[in-house]
Each structure stands twice: as structure tokens, then as C-alpha cells.
Amino acid sequence: MRRSDEARREILSAIRENLTRSARGREPRGIAPGSAELGKPTADPGPAARGSKERGDVVSSFTEQLAAVGAQWTVVRGATEAAHALAGILTAAGARRVAGSDAPLVQRLVSGLGDGFVRESLEGLSRDGLFACDAGVTTAQWGIAETGTLVLESAREKNRLLSLVPPIHVALLSTSCICDSLGDALARVSRASHAITLITGPSRTSDIELTLVVGVHGPQAVHVLLLEEEP
């Protein structure tokens, strides 16, 4: 028998014994697991009760929160505008070595970048190569208006390292995918992803004398390209 099996049995029986002992103190073992009453959120009345905001309000509260957490954003319409904006953002940030995720839109935009850039392909990019990149470009599957948060799902694209290792992260997000609240976003994410990453602004620390420094281990700049539907 595996040692861990023995440990498992012993821990579970210790839990049961101690809970039984507490029940003898005239305290019933209480609410059934998964009881409907507790499953019902009380902290947030949910989108219906809260009144669904207009799309424009959701976008503007999202960008307001992006600013509050130190992220930048640009609103664009269509792929051509997005390509221009991406080149502008990268040039302004002084980024030369750029890698994009495997999302089709990202591939198209990155391959359209001019000769001033070194375009790295994520396939076959060594660890050193990844560490040498100036900027990573990915999409975000969802945004959260309440907190200025990006939600990245691993099942949809290879976004984990490019949104983390290079000093600049550019994320493409459709304005129609901005949720009101964290609760809405959690209800919508695909649980099939083995990694779901929530990103709120650049990497930060206050570990030395409580002085805020951005870009400690993750990106020091997060730029959101907000894609509006073409009319």
C-alpha cells in the first residue's frame, strides 16, 4: 500500500473523529453540503438585479479602471486600424523584438509589422529567446469592467508566457467581451482551460520600504487594444 494512501486514510478519519466529537457538544453537523441556500450569492445581486449597463458605460468603466491600475489602452475599429495602433505602441515603447501568440488575429497583426521589428515566432522559441523579447502580443478572452482586469484562457491560445515574460504585454480584446463584474466573468470563462489567468495592470511590488515599483517579475507595461465591432 502506498504511504500516501495510508496518510489519506488517517487524515480523513482524524477529520471525521474530530467533527463527531464537536457534534457531541450538541452541535449538529449543520448545513448539507452544496445546500442551495449557500450556493446563492448574496454579496452581488447579479447582472439582472444590478441593471444591465449600456455597452458604452461598460467600456468606459473598464478603461477608467485600466487607468487606475496603471495600464494603457487604445480603441480601434477593424484590423487595419489595429495594425497601425500596434506598430505605434511598440515603436513608442522602444520595442524591437516582438513575439505573438498563436491566435489568428495576433499572427496576422504581428506578421504585418514593418522591417523595423524583429518578429519572433512562438514555435521553437528557446527560453533565452523568450527572455530576450521586448514585447509579447496576445488576445484576452474577457475583460472585467469593475476592476480593469483581463482574463486569459489557456484553451484558446498560447498566451501564458507571452503575457508574462517580456517587459511589454499588448493584449487584444473585443469590447463585446467586457463583463460587468468578476462574478459575471467567472460564470462565463471556459473551465476547460488548465490555466486561467486574471491580469490587472502591470506587475508590481512594494516590498522595499513600501515604495511601489512596477515590472518586478512580469511586464512593466500592459497595453490593451480594444477592438470595436465594425459598423
Binding site: 491600475v69 490555466a195 486574471l198 490587472t200 506587475s203 512580469g218
Partner: peptide
């Protein structure tokens, strides 16, 4: 903070 910079949900 309303949210920290990162939450990793790993399954």
C-alpha cells in the same frame, strides 16, 4: 486592492 495584479486558476 480591488484585485491583486494576478490570479492564476490552475486545473
Amino acid at each position: 486592492q480591488a484585485l491583486t495584479a494576478y490570479q492564476s486558476l490552475l486545473t
